[in-house]
Amino acid sequence: MADYSSLTVVQLKDLLTKRNLSVGGLKNELVQRLIKDDEESKGESEVSP
């Protein structure tokens, strides 16, 4: 898992935009949104054959 907390808000928003996720909120919220997306993506890849 990436260390999103070391990134700037601009970098976080860029990552969120690329994933089609909301870019609104405080830095901590942006980090949590990326972590949640990582976990959901990981779960999907494990279920797929």
Rank of each mutant, 00 (worst) to 15 (best):
D37T: 04
G24F: 14
K27M: 03
K27A: 06
N28V: 08
L30G: 03
S45P: 15
G24Y: 15
V10I: 11
K36E: 14
T8A: 04
S48P: 11
K18I: 05
R33V: 01
E39Y: 06
P49T: 10
L16E: 02
S41M: 06
K36G: 06
Y4K: 01
N28M: 11
V10F: 08
Q32V: 06
E39R: 14
E29I: 02
E46D: 05
L7Y: 07
E29W: 00
L21S: 02
L7K: 07
D14Q: 14
D38P: 01
L21A: 03
E44M: 15
A2K: 15
D14F: 06
A2F: 15
T8N: 11
L34Y: 01
K18S: 10
E39L: 12
N20A: 13
L7M: 15
L12I: 09
S5R: 09
L7D: 01
E40T: 13
E46P: 13
E29Q: 07
K27T: 04
K36Q: 10
Q32H: 04
D37L: 03
L16I: 04
T8D: 07
I35D: 03
D14N: 15
L26P: 12
I35F: 05
M1T: 08
R33P: 00
V9N: 01
S48G: 07
S41R: 12
L7N: 03
T17P: 00
E44Y: 10
V10T: 13
E44Q: 13
A2Y: 15
S45E: 13
Y4F: 05
V47P: 14
L16K: 02
E39T: 10
V47W: 10
K13Q: 10
L21I: 01
L12G: 03
Q11Y: 04
N20Y: 03
L12S: 02
D38M: 03
D3G: 11
D38A: 02
D38C: 04
I35M: 10
E44K: 06
T8E: 01
L16D: 01
G25V: 01
D37F: 12
S48Y: 11
S22N: 11
D38K: 03
S41I: 13
T17Y: 08
V47F: 08
K18M: 12
V9S: 07
S41Y: 15
S22G: 10
K18H: 08
L30E: 05
V47Q: 12
M1W: 02
L12T: 01
L34C: 04
S41Q: 09
T8C: 05
N28Q: 15
Y4C: 01
R19K: 04
E29R: 02
G43N: 13
N20S: 08
V31N: 01
K18L: 08
G43H: 09
A2V: 15
V31D: 01
I35P: 02
V31I: 08
K18P: 01
R33H: 05
S41V: 11
G24L: 14
T17W: 08
D37E: 08
V9H: 09
L21N: 04
L34D: 02
L30R: 05
E39V: 11
L21G: 03
L16R: 00
L26S: 13
L16T: 01
L30N: 02
V10M: 15
E39S: 11
K18F: 06
V31P: 01
S45C: 09
L15H: 03
S6C: 15
S5I: 03
G24S: 13
D37C: 05
V31L: 07
N20W: 02
E40C: 15
